[in-house]
Design a protein around this nucleic acid. Structure first.
Lengths: 193, 193
DNA sequence: GGAAAATCAGAATGATCGTTCTGAAAACAC
DNA sequence: GTGTTTTCAGAACGATCATTCTGATTTTCC
């Protein structure tokens, strides 16, 4: 290797995540990616393969970051309802404030590609199941400290929260005001107690 | 007018709804529409204008049919929790059984187009608000007959149910099994009582 | 400084897109 | 049957897409 690469692949992938999150797979062109990342076509193809592989890596990055930022803390023994609520509030923050076009990449990908791409469908399902499980574990912790009713089926409620998080994403993407989203979260949370 | 039109515009629109529901706007080409409807390009453009206008009419048809089929009954004085639950179950039926690629066109359109098309965003928001209002009215009826707790804020719960319906659509589109969807609906419904 | 190797920016390519155009076919009036 | 008008099927068009190719540029090694 002689000439050094003029870009940081990790940073380029972050930009790709932003673009794909905002516009989805089909509506994001390689030209858009070249412009947004500042990386040459040569660099993009050489580093990430092709558009589909770049998208898959972006999706993985997105899911991974979301897992680390939001769901990891639910696995700790002191997890409580506050942490669960925080996940919803962080999502609102992420989807509403910065810029305005940011949607939920998981949700968008599910609608756009899941039924027509087995591999993507698998990735999404695995991630969603992990989300549900993390919610369930957090709910068990919350149950132990009496924050949720003892009769609550943590596993079912975990799946419910995962679905609710996507419902929230659709409402946000549709442009509903923040107080509508806050109200949705309040209703969701109150169903646990 | 001399030669008569060889197709039924209403039926052609129904086919367009199916296609757009399954694949969304960008992933459905005019060629696909020509093949699926059996209508010539000439007929499609002459009757519906262009792709975008055809899509808008398909969206309107979809929303209208969904309103008539599912939400109208909530406005009647005998509306109850059964009718609300039926809406969720009908959606599961529609999204899971027939064929398998049918997603929720409202939900899909929200993710794909809403932030980049003001008009579409408006259509979606108006429809979602009508959904929420219908849910709220149904909940008031249910409250009168003691099916839901008196403390329930019907307006907030209406918005919550609308969001939950989209969350359900995302889960369905991701290929989750029917019992997962049923469980999600059960959790959603139990939050009302 | 000069050769070698990798990257760059952007042109080229072939496919597909939405849309328009065209000649043949069909349906009605007479 | 003939003429007129509309629809039809599909070719044609220009734009855009993902991808590949190319000649110039940059960097390291010697």
């Amino acid at each position: 290797m002689v000439r050094t690469r003029a870009f940081d692949p990790s940073e380029a992938l972050s930009r790709a995540v932003e673009l794909f999150s905002s516009r989805g797979y089909s509506e994001t062109s390689m030209d858009d990616l070249v412009k947004a990342t500042g990386v040459s076509r040569y660099g993009l193809y050489g580093t990430f393969g092709n558009k589909q592989e770049l998208f898959e890596q972006a999706l993985e990055r997105y899911a991974d970051r979301m897992g680390r930022r939001s769901f990891l803390r639910l696995l700790e023994p002191d997890a409580s309802l506050v942490h669960i609520r925080a996940i919803f509030e962080e999502r609102i923050q992420e989807m509403c404030s910065s810029g305005k076009n940011h949607g939920c990449m998981i949700c968008h990908t599910a609608m756009e590609l899941a039924p027509h791409d087995r591999e993507i469908e698998g990735v999404l399902q695995r991630f969603m199941k992990r989300m549900s499980k993390a919610f369930a574990i957090g709910l068990e912790s919350a149950k132990e400290r009496g924050e949720v009713r003892a009769s609550l089926d943590a596993r079912a409620a975990g799946e419910f929260l995962t679905g609710a998080l996507f419902g929230l994403a659709v409402l946000a993407r549709s442009g509903f005001a923040r107080d509508t989203l806050d109200s949705f979260v309040a209703s969701t949370m109150s169903s646990l107690t």
